[in-house]
Design a protein around this nucleic acid. Structure first.
Lengths: 207, 207, 207, 207
DNA sequence: CATGAATGAGAGTTCATTCAT
DNA sequence: CATGAATGAACTCTCATTCAT
């Protein structure tokens, strides 16, 4: 995402390749971290392994991040941002509530299926105390459009007047659970499951 | 639970007190581990801290567990067993499906609310690669009664013919999410929320 | 010093050897640190080298000291205490000023000549920002008896009414300089030099 | 000093400004190093910090000095040279011994008071093993005029026949001690103190 | 000349584990 | 059974130095 932006802004071919090189290195670090944390857990993901997989020196990591904690915080926020900006890309306040909810739900599902590693990374960060409280708070803000839809739905008496946490627990969070199960090899999510899941989600909150 | 069993089996008063002392120490270790892992994460829970909080020597831990991994595995399985044996304590195959499901769901909710720390510990283990795959598999077996109810429900066409993973995702897992949110201080679960949650759960899977 | 105390206090032969072992290890660490810092400077004295010379594991150092800074602070204070308690061992307020000063001066000189390594270590700590300000303050307090003699000397009009810093600069500090020169191999302090030095010291401050 | 020399040798205005720019950079490096070493000690003065404070790249330092050790050695020698050339600026073999000594002593005191940071830097280098032995030897040579005065004084039986090290210890070194104390905030040197100090110095060595 | 980015080597420190007691 | 002391291995992080530009 930043890569694209940079490309647009830079005219000198020289500068561009430099920036891209930096961005590539950063991306390699992000990918390596996500993969290692997903497979081994944060506690078994030393900086040295991240460096090795990203093909850089451990010292180089500290040019991009302040320390290990900052690395995880920043990656969490970046991935959360990717997740929500993808999920709400087509969102419009004009669209009717039910359709809007369905579209968002589907894009969320698409993201989680298509970027499984990132979805699992988020699930792990959201369920354990690996990221800073402040980063967690920051990450929550990005969900606003979903909350807006729910509010409209409640006002229009299409959606039950439940707490947003309950709505989230019964519509969005089940997808995280299924993705984690799939990654653990217990379960394989098929297209039909997603349709069933949407129905279950909608039934649980519709008035 | 084990304490009771042990007590019954021992007759010599001397032996008994010793065993009880041992059990107390083991319990202290379990409690300390759960508390520390919940609050700091597995990666920030050294054996030495567990020992200090449980008021034993680090070396003593190795009399009760083979190593740190074994400690977490064993605690996970023990807590999972506590969780399920509580949840299915009143279960009978004679009870009608809907009532059976409701009773189980309520006991699960009761356990998670009453033993929040244990529920959160399980959630953390279930969402991250901290425990061995074999222990995870072992833990799943305990859920059989719930699967039986669902099977009966599907046969009787009271419950949608969904995969058990979907059923779990939409009825049980939301409670884990809510508990984690509550522990993070974001949300406070009230009695009414539990009633709403049950309705949402049932609506999402009932035919 | 502590070793002796411990020996007195302990009756069980068992306990004694343990304490001695600990004290021996601590002493080895202190000696290794002093020697290395004197020869290479604080900046070229890694914990690993100290450990090697003291024949312990680097980790063991952290059983005796909180961190490297604490190690240096504690050694500084201990050595300063050794220095002053030796220097003022025979001090009595009854002794006439000039005699008292001469005795103290001679014991200071004796200490610096006999424990050259410790004297040099103190000189290095006193002239550079390697120890904490608080430790430095703490160390100064031990000089009180010397200041008392000077005060008496000023009152009796035997010693010039100079600031204690000036008195120290012209009577005690020259010895530090000479010791450092000797350690650098530039100068060899003989008995006669000490007599000359005392005369110079006394002449510089006497009324 | 070097700046002046360079300026004289260059005729091309272009070259001159460049050289001056270079010299400015070198001066910035010297100042930054002295300040950092004085305040934090050599062990806590990384090249990167020196570079930052001097507003140059770390790599640039290696255009002016071979390595960190060379940097300190060269700065030590340069400052020592500044110190002695200032101190002996007015020196003449014709001047009588006592007057000559007094003049030198006063200029030394002036330098140490006026260029406190440089004086403290020298004190730190002279009391610890941070500079190379060869640089230390080199630095000593600059003191020759002072040794000459003392020799004349000894021949004329105005000064005690003491080793030059003793003479230095009791006349010059006390000033270093007082400056260090002042920098540590313990003591404030006033004009009167300097007069007293000179008297003490002279009394300690005069015949 | 000057540099920002990169890094290998090594720093200080922690930790799971062992062992003599 | 229980332990405090000890440690090798490994961790996070820093730093003097280099190099392509």
């Amino acid at each position: 995402m930043n890569v694209h932006l940079s490309s647009y802004l830079c005219t000198s071919k020289h500068k561009m390749s430099e920036v891209q090189k930096s961005e590539l290195k950063r991306k390699a670090l992000v990918d390596a971290t996500i993969s290692l944390v997903n497979n081994n857990g944060f506690h078994a993901t030393p900086i040295s392994k991240i460096a090795k997989i990203a093909s850089v020196s451990p010292a180089t990591i500290y040019l991009y991040f302040e320390n290990k904690q900052d690395l995880v915080n920043k990656i969490y926020l970046q991935v959360k941002e990717e997740f929500t900006s993808y999920s709400f890309a087509n969102y419009s306040e004009e669209t009717p509530v039910e359709q809007s909810f369905k579209e968002i739900w589907n894009r969320i599902a698409q993201f989680k299926m298509g970027r499984m590693d990132k979805a699992i990374f988020l699930a792990q960060c959201d369920n354990t105390p690996v990221i800073d409280e402040s980063s967690r708070q920051e990450g929550i803000k990005h969900l606003q459009p979903l909350l807006d839809v729910w509010n409209r739905g409640k006002e229009d008496q299409l959606i039950k007047p439940l707490s947003d946490y309950l709505l989230y627990a019964y519509t969005i969070n089940p997808l995280s659970f299924l993705i984690v199960m799939q990654q653990q090899g217990s379960f394989k999510i098929e297209a039909q499951h997603l349709e069933e899941a949407y129905q279950a989600a909608w039934n649980s909150i519709k008035l």
